[in-house]
């Protein structure tokens, strides 16, 4: 139970704390006030509680696939906001927009990951024998996830401006790709996209179940058995975000932001 709690909570916390850490570091580099982060965490947490409380109702929507639709929408929104952040950091005049997008991005990430954590832990509150191990495991998972976020933040912040921005964007590009891939996954599961046979299977190489697989999943949406549409859209979203990122880095290097 304990190790299971560690892995479940770690996966959720790592994704949110990675996004938060990178965005805070990019704020620091671009001299954006970081006041958005606290508000985003509070609002995201509140929304997560509400989402978790109404999960049964949401799940039943649209012939039982409401959860998948909401999740897919959340993933697409997060992807769009990451795209907006990467674009807006190219010019001083867009920095306010970038901060707003960061706020939205963290709210949605916390909503998404937080609700899963609440549903998970809440389920054990009626099982006293398992509650302590689950709480201990959850604390360990959350501690590891948050610590990695802290290290990512200070690592990017300690880099010189241009390298900090490049590495921050690098992480964001893959998170963006992961969001699109997960959105497709949700639509597949809800049968809103017709299922096909996977075009490859790398589960022998890196199992999604393994720790490495879990970390790769959190960082870049690793999928051992993707379908063609997923691979195409994943690649496209990475190319698009990467294109925006390179544009922003070039503009920044020309001294627009310095």
């Amino acid at each position: 139970m304990l190790i299971n709690a560690v892995i479940i909570i770690l996966r959720e916390v790592l994704e949110a704390s990675l996004i938060l850490g990178v965005l805070l570091a990019l704020s620091q580099h671009n001299q954006i006030s970081k006041s958005w982060s606290l508000k985003a965490l509070l609002l995201g947490g509140l929304a997560a509680v509400m989402y978790a409380a109404n999960l049964a109702m949401i799940s039943a929507l649209h012939e039982g696939v409401g959860q998948e639709i909401v999740n897919a929408v959340l993933y697409v929104f997060i992807f769009t906001l990451i795209l907006a952040i990467v674009y807006c950091l190219r010019d001083k005049q867009y920095l306010k927009l970038a901060a707003a997008a960061m706020f939205g991005c963290v709210v949605l990430a916390v909503l998404r990951e937080g609700s899963e954590i609440i549903v998970y832990i809440h389920g054990f509150s009626t099982i006293p024998d398992l509650f302590t191990p689950v709480l201990v495991g959850s604390s360990i998972g959350a501690g590891i996830g948050l610590s990695i976020g802290v290290f990512v933040y200070y690592l990017i912040v300690s880099l010189p401006f241009i390298y900090g921005v490049i590495s921050g964007f690098f992480v964001l590009v893959f998170i963006a790709g992961g969001m699109v891939s997960q959105a497709i996954q949700m639509l597949l599961q809800a049968d809103l996209i017709s299922s096909e046979l996977p075009i490859w299977d790398t589960s022998q190489l890196v199992s999604e179940q393994s720790i490495v697989g879990q970390i790769l999943f959190a960082m870049m949406g690793y999928e051992a058995t993707p379908i063609l549409l997923q691979v195409v859209l994943y690649t496209a979203s990475i190319l698009l975000t990467g294109f925006f990122a390179i544009g922003s880095i070039k503009r920044t290097q020309q001294g627009n932001l310095l």
């Binding site: 190790i3 360990i140 590891i144 610590s147 990695i148």
Partner: peptide, 30 residues
């Protein structure tokens, strides 16, 4: 890196957390 105190606190705490939790997990598994 606005505050040395916060930086040291977070960096130390993150290190302690990572090291001790990972070793605890290893212990748990065995």
């Amino acid at each position: 890196m606005k505050s040395i105190r916060i930086y040291l606190l977070l960096a130390l705490l993150a290190t302690i957390t990572l090291v001790s939790f990972l070793s605890v997990l290893q212990g748990y598994r065995s």
